[in-house]
Amino acid sequence: MSIIEQFSPQPKTPSLPLQAGVLAAVTVAAIALGWFAGQYLNRSSAEAAAAVETQDAAAEQDQLRGTEIQLEAITTNLAVPNTMWVRLEASIVLDQPPSPTLADEIHQDLLAYMRTVKVYQIEGASGFRNLKADLEERARIRSSGHVKQVLIRTLLFE
């Protein structure tokens, strides 16, 4: 053994009880942090669920206030490409009881509109939203503003 090795400090390793204490402290801190995070998220999800229930109840009340009429299915070909067919099943929600011929008039108007639609106009989510907005606008015009909403139940392309 050389003189340098004799006088150089030997590295100390932490004692086993100290290591166990640090491990226990970190474990307790992790458990506490997990519990607090769970409580926070649970409270947030409960508030979100209550908000959704409130919105659903309001929508249900709106539906009860209106009269919903199922229209006959619309099956026609699109303007471009004219080999592509579309089937649309929809309902309208009115703010008052309808006249006997109103549903047929709206059905014929929506059928005529669907014949003018080009496939690239209704691609994607924004195209679907635009189609729905156009259908609602045409139905409101045809009903003198009594149609509150057009509900698209099925939209198939072939």
Rank of each mutant, 00 (worst) to 15 (best):
K118I: 00
M114P: 02
V119M: 14
E136A: 14
R138I: 14
S126Y: 05
L110I: 08
A133L: 08
L88C: 07
E105R: 06
L102N: 03
Q121R: 03
D109K: 09
Q121P: 01
K118H: 08
L94T: 13
I106M: 05
A139R: 05
Q121I: 00
A139H: 05
Q121M: 03
S99N: 14
S91V: 03
R129D: 13
V119P: 00
A133T: 14
Y113H: 08
A112H: 10
L102K: 04
L102D: 03
I122Q: 00
P98H: 09
V93L: 15
R115I: 00
Q108G: 10
T101D: 12
L94N: 06
E137F: 14
A112L: 09
S126T: 11
T116N: 03
F128E: 07
D109W: 00
E136S: 09
R138M: 12
D104E: 14
P100Y: 15
E89M: 12
N130C: 00
E89Q: 15
I92F: 01
Q121G: 01
L94G: 09
N130W: 08
L110H: 02
L135E: 01
A133R: 14
E105M: 08
A125F: 13
T101C: 01
L94E: 04
D95Q: 13
A125C: 02
S99E: 15
M114T: 01
Q96K: 13
V93E: 15
S99R: 15
F128R: 12
P98F: 06
M114E: 00
S126I: 06
E136P: 01
H107D: 10
P97E: 15
T101E: 12
S126W: 03
A90W: 09
R87Y: 07
E105T: 10
D134Q: 11
R138C: 07
V93D: 10
K132F: 04
D95N: 15
L111W: 04
A125Y: 09
E89A: 10
T116S: 07
A125K: 11
P97L: 05
V93W: 12
I122N: 01
G127P: 06
V119I: 14
R115C: 01
A103L: 02
V117I: 07
A139F: 06
G127K: 01
E123T: 08
Q96Y: 07
I92S: 02
P100F: 12
D134G: 08
Q96D: 13
Y113R: 06
P97N: 15
K132D: 09
T101L: 11
R87G: 04
L111Y: 05
A125M: 11
E137S: 15
Y120Q: 12
R115G: 04
L88P: 00
L135C: 02
R129T: 10
R129H: 07
E105P: 02
V93Y: 13
T116A: 01
E105A: 10
Y113V: 06
R138H: 07
V119R: 11
D134F: 01
L88T: 03
A103Y: 05
D134K: 08
N130E: 13
L135D: 00
R115H: 05
A112C: 04
V93T: 13
E89F: 05
L94C: 11
V119T: 03
D104Q: 13
